[in-house]
Design a protein around this nucleic acid. Structure first.
Length: 479
RNA sequence: CGAGGUGUAGCGCAGUGUGGUAGCGCGCUACGUUCGGGACGUAGAAGUCGCAGGUUCAAAUCCUGUCACCUCGACCA
């Protein structure tokens, strides 16, 4: 019999220090480690598996939209990046340069891609001639590099993994539709797969992507009330097309510039996932992105028939398509309980001699920490249902949490109170001016997040200047 | 870039005042006893004390320089 030992807390509580808690969770669950170069991270197998699951499921949704995958080079010539003025200005402070090839100084320096608009455009201009070539919808899964001043694993790292979609269309309407379609795909994906509720809307001019006509974003609320921009979709208009000379011959025989979009989500989604669901015991993963959905723990393994009994259960779960881990390591049961809880496995299945005798197993679900008993007969089907339940439960819980923390703010003081004291989002009426946006940032630390597609009008005066308001804007402190 | 802090075993830390042969907890290895919420015993392995110089018979400890990292600002689609 194992003696009870004082519980050694490995993870800082969220209440005490949210950012330390976050770091503890990702390091101690062995999802990532810090890389040798400052601001980089090594994604370990457990973390990478989550990314793979995101990739698979998101990519399938892209394909449904007629998007094809491709791969473009890591290095971009300086001249290409510089073609679009606003674009280069936006990224200049954070690009990494390559100036040497072997021992030779390069005639033209190269940048490590911070995003690939320019190189896509360069190729588009060669590939497109006729309206019959359009639309062209491409996507690539790759890494990008941005030399950030301050970094945090998953949320802002110098190098990160993402997908970037780039499409070109013959009409403005079609490009706009594509932009909207993709932000919609992201929003649905975030809620259905990551169980992460998001608010979709348009960014202010200040927060817009460098070179875009309009940027749409999905914003999620983390458990400390800060906002996370979890995915963006940009309507690039014809800016890039004009600079890179991407023209096509229309049905009417007239040369026209294409209308363009780009959209992306990154490994930041994993950071969002963690800060949305996890608790003081560690990770809580939604079943659809859990590398291990169910762990089977044989109790008192040395006893006759336990391993065999558990093994049969494992086989039946695997046959039902459940990602199952069979943990037969020589460790105490309590130790394993904690280990798998920390790693966020949605369902734990204990199989002990007493269970087997009674033809049942003991179940614990990670989201509610509730224990229950299920019969071995028909267990796999029951677990499939349970996983669906967990998935749904997590979304509901997160949505409830978020909705409670969106506060209407009618003046600067209420806005500050919403983000600072109540740790939430401020829903405001805003005049649309840059001056007010800057002043709000200065006074409250909050930045504009999105003008939600679902506008909630609650007044007619700007939260900052009191002049007539034009739009409902969410303000929040953000990552 | 401004202010503060920290570098000692894989991780977390003590030791630095007053210089004297490197310590603790966790983890790791082997064997045995255990096994339904972080087990126990015994025996082990593991450190150029961030780096470079200086003072000294002797430096983790004192002096000088330097590097790295962390926190808070600033900055950041």
């Amino acid at each position: 019999m194992a003696k009870k030992q004082e519980f050694v807390k490995e993870i800082t509580s969220r209440e005490e220090n949210f950012s330390q808690w976050y770091t503890d969770v990702i390091l101690k669950t062995q999802m990532v480690d810090y890389g040798p170069v400052k601001g980089t991270m090594v994604i370990r197998p457990y973390g990478y598996r989550i990314w793979e699951l995101i990739q698979q499921q998101l990519d399938a949704r892209f394909k449904e939209c007629g998007v094809q995958n491709a791969y473009f080079p890591l290095l971009i010539p300086e001249s290409l990046l510089k073609k679009e003025a606003e674009h280069v200005e936006g990224f200049a402070p954070e690009v990494a340069w390559v100036t040497k090839g072997g021992h030779e100084e390069l005639a033209e320096p190269l940048v490590v891609r911070p995003t690939s608009e320019t190189i896509f455009c360069d190729m588009f201009s060669k590939w497109v001639q006729s309206y019959r070539d359009l639309p062209m919808k491409l996507n690539q899964w790759c890494n990008v590099m941005r030399w950030e001043k301050s970094t945090r694993p998953f949320l802002r790292t110098s190098e990160f993994l993402w997908q970037e979609g780039h499409t070109i269309h013959s009409t403005q309407e079609e490009a706009l539709e594509m932009t909207m379609q993709m932000i919609g795909v992201y929003g649905k994906f975030a809620e259905e797969v990551l169980a992460m509720p998001v608010i979709i809307g348009q960014k202010s001019d200040k927060e817009r992507f460098a070179g875009a006509v309009a940027t749409y974003s999905m914003e999620a609320m983390m458990q400390d009330g800060q906002a996370l921009q979890a995915g963006t979709s940009h309507n690039l208009g014809q800016h890039f097309a004009k600079v890179f000379d991407i023209k096509f011959l229309g049905k009417d025989g007239v040369q026209e510039y294409v209308h363009q979009t780009s959209w992306g989500v990154s490994t930041r989604l994993i950071g969002g996932l963690i800060m949305t669901h996890s608790d003081d015991r560690g990770l809580v993963l939604p079943p659809r992105v859990a590398p291990i959905q169910a762990v089977v723990l044989p109790i008192a393994m040395h006893k006759e028939g336990v391993i065999e009994g558990a093994e049969k259960i494992v086989e039946s779960l695997k046959a039902a398509g459940i990602r199952t881990e069979f943990d037969t390591r020589d460790q105490s049961a309590g130790w394993k309980f904690n280990e798998w809880e920390m790693k966020g496995v949605p369902v734990r299945i204990e199989v002990g001699p007493r269970d087997l005798e009674a033809g049942q197993v003991t179940i614990m679900r990670r989201d509610t920490l509730e224990k229950s008993v299920l019969p071995i007969e028909g267990l796999a089907e029951a677990i499939v249902d349970l996983l669906d339940d967990v998935q749904e439960g997590l979304l509901c819980k997160a949505r409830g949490y978020r909705d409670e923390r969106i506060f209407e703010a009618n003046d600067l003081d209420e806005l500050r109170e919403a983000v600072e004291d109540k740790h939430g989002f401020a829903s405001t009426m805003w005049c649309g001016s840059r001056e007010c946006e800057d002043l709000i940032k200065e006074k409250t630390g909050a930045t504009s997040r999105v003008m939600p597609f679902e506008q909630k009008c609650h007044g007619d005066k700007c939260v900052c200047c009191g002049k007539p308001a034009t739009v409902n804007m969410l303000f929040a402190r953000s990552y």
